[in-house]
Design a protein around this nucleic acid. Structure first.
Lengths: 199, 199
DNA sequence: TAGTATACTGAATAGTCATTCATTTTATCC
DNA sequence: GGATAAAATGAATGACTATTCAGTATACTA
């Protein structure tokens, strides 16, 4: 039952799926296409995944796992909340911008169904938002962030900005690097639009 | 060739599609299901729409049309950039929050494929972003917004925050009204996180 | 009211693909 | 090297559904 001992074949299938799904979309991608690119037989896919949808889930788990562990690591390397925020913004944009195929999947293909998004947001994305929320809470304690923020709300807002930049980059044909937006994002998040926010 | 003179039947089909697609997702919704709910025969659908995908497109056009025209109207009713921003944020959250089925479609189901999103963002969403960008530019001229903003960037960031709030509301089971977040959103957009943004 | 154009119907078609499983290949062990 | 188990294969299956179109109903005209 141990399949191909190391995760080699499973990883190969996931790698193939990233390319095919990014190129054709989840629904236009057949299991046979993934099998072909991975260099295995159609049936082999089912030794590693219960069904086609589970490939998509696993894809996301693998990618989001990196996101979360590297995110935590970046946060731990910073000291002030501002610095932590800067680090996490840079990480987010860098990771998404590193692999366009994967970006297409995370920004577009994974958002297919309510059921699916629900699962994702409950688990992986939720943990990511928690990290963001902790940074905001620290900033409030430090006194560098406004005292009237709600960290849960702010975490979502931060995520919203990052996510929109990522989606915009995926949809644009320009090949300007995504991480080049990091400074603008941080400035916007810290300072907002207003010159004098105290209305 | 004039079909059913007024747009009655076409609208009925779109209305039915909203409900079915919101409930089951685009791919699990069959043309027959839409026809049944609309009270027409399967074939009738094809008198009004070239194919299934065109239903989805039309759905979005109809909804986004309201968004843009009401958005312009709200913006025109405001005088200062701040006030315009507040109005548009409230409108956005109110419109999305008004109809959960439609919200599911705009936040989830419409993001089906790269090709599809591309079309949308180029047309409808692009126009919406333009409106937001104009408000930002006005704020900069007025002197109420920071002079170092890029209106195109800021428009995307604003949209990102609004979109994330909308998606979060769709996914959450809580029935807190979406528009109750308007003040928090405006405060965040205007003031950002920092107490003293001038780093 | 007959005749014609328009709108609608829904059963049949035609194709697609996820998934299965009997069979073959490869690895392991004594 | 023969036996056994684990992995992998890929052709066949079965289910599903978008779309078509020959036929029917309805509205309009003169």
């Amino acid at each position: 039952m141990a399949r191909n001992s190391d995760g080699t074949k499973r990883a190969a299938i996931l790698d193939a799926a990233v390319v095919e799904i990014a190129r054709h979309g989840y629904h236009q991608t057949t299991v046979a296409m993934v099998a072909r690119r991975a260099g295995v037989a159609d049936g082999t896919i089912y030794l590693y995944f219960r069904n086609k949808e589970e490939i998509l889930f696993s894809l996301f788990e693998r990618a989001m796992g990196r996101f979360i562990s590297e995110g935590r690591s970046q946060v731990d390397q910073g000291t002030t909340a501002r610095e932590k925020l800067r680090r996490i913004v840079e990480l987010h944009l860098t990771l998404v911008g590193k692999d366009r195929d994967l970006a297409i999947i995370s920004q577009v293909e994974l958002r297919h169904s309510l059921h699916f998004m629900d699962q994702l947001s409950r688990n992986q994305v939720g943990e990511y938002l928690t990290i963001l929320g902790e940074v905001v809470a620290q900033g409030m304690e430090e006194g560098s962030f406004r005292h009237d923020l709600d960290p849960v709300f702010a975490a979502k807002a931060i995520f919203g900005v990052l996510d929109e930049m990522a989606t915009d980059w995926v949809l644009s044909r320009r090949n300007k690097r995504l991480e080049s937006q990091a400074k603008a994002v941080v400035d916007f998040l810290l300072g907002g639009l207003s010159i004098n926010p105290a209305v």
